[in-house]
């Protein structure tokens, strides 16, 4: 399916930013703001990454898991689908889809290890039940395309495929999963935005190269700005704010 992203369900189901930023009514009633919503999703993306590092799966599995989690919350409420269960379950499902199955038992073990907090405490049975609910919520669309794939050919084409640039852009792509970009933009444009930022940072002149690509540079720049905005505001995302947001979910409306 590598050949045609353009006929994939991923492409067909790309969303507008407004749709992604819709806080579910049930969550609104609990006082969840758009800011909280984004914060919780970012925190869960981090949680998935931490778990993934424990169970040792590839970055691609992490990326797929985060995408699943973000897709789930365009359709379901956090009040009904507790993010603290959805996050590890998405990693569980993604590990199967990406052919590197992780046992539920192992996940349950590392969940306990990572969080002493009872609110994170979920058992194997909970994960297995949630797996089916997530499959349904995703409407069984499981194939996800990621920016990683186009990254190395693009870097190579631009003559920027040295270790430094590769690592920098790869890191930037990883960070894009802390945002909803993957739900809104085609992955190769996200990859281009990361290359764009990296080339500006490292003072590489890529103007000519970008001009030759037949892509809408305005979109690439907008994605770049969004990523940079994220880095700016990232400093204000404290543990405390995340906890306050998560706490709202457990409160009665």
């Amino acid at each position: 399916m590598a050949a045609n992203f353009w006929t994939s369900s991923h492409y067909k189901h790309l969303l507008e930013q407004e749709d992604v930023d819709m806080v579910n009514t049930l969550d609104k009633e609990k006082g969840i703001t758009l800011e909280d919503f984004k914060l919780i999703k970012m925190h869960m993306a981090n949680y998935i990454l931490k778990l993934a590092q424990q169970v040792k799966v590839r970055q691609r599995v992490v990326a797929t898991a985060v995408t699943y989690m973000r897709r789930v919350y365009t359709r379901k409420s956090m009040a009904e689908y507790d993010p603290r269960l959805v996050a590890p379950t998405c990693l569980y499902l993604a590990s199967k889809a990406e052919e590197s199955t992780v046992q539920a038992r192992l996940l349950a073990f590392y969940i306990k290890k990572l969080y002493a907090d009872d609110k994170y405490r979920y058992e194997i049975k909970d994960i297995l039940e949630m797996e089916m609910k997530i499959l349904e919520a995703l409407n069984y669309y499981l194939v996800v395309y990621h920016p990683y794939r186009s990254l190395s050919p693009l870097l190579q084409d631009a003559g920027l495929n040295d270790l430094n640039m590769t690592q920098l852009t790869w890191g930037l792509v990883n960070d894009t999963y802390k945002m909803d970009l993957i739900l809104v933009h085609p992955p190769h444009l996200i990859a281009l935005a990361c290359i764009y930022i990296a080339s500006v940072l490292r003072d590489k002149d890529t103007t000519a190269w970008f001009e030759e690509l037949r892509v809408d540079m305005n979109v690439v720049k907008n994605i770049s700005m969004e990523i940079l905005d994220f880095y700016e505001s990232n400093r204000m995302f404290t543990e405390e704010r995340i906890n306050v947001a998560l706490q709202k979910l457990t409160l009665r409306p």
Binding site: L49, Q59, E99, Y145, R149, Q167, N174, D175
Partner: peptide, 19 residues
């Protein structure tokens, strides 16, 4: 999937360092 798997690039661990 084999065809689309990213086989290059830093592992999650190196990425964390990068971050």
């Amino acid at each position: 999937l084999e065809a689309t798997r990213c086989s290059t690039g830093p592992s999650a661990a190196t990425v964390e360092k990068e971050r």
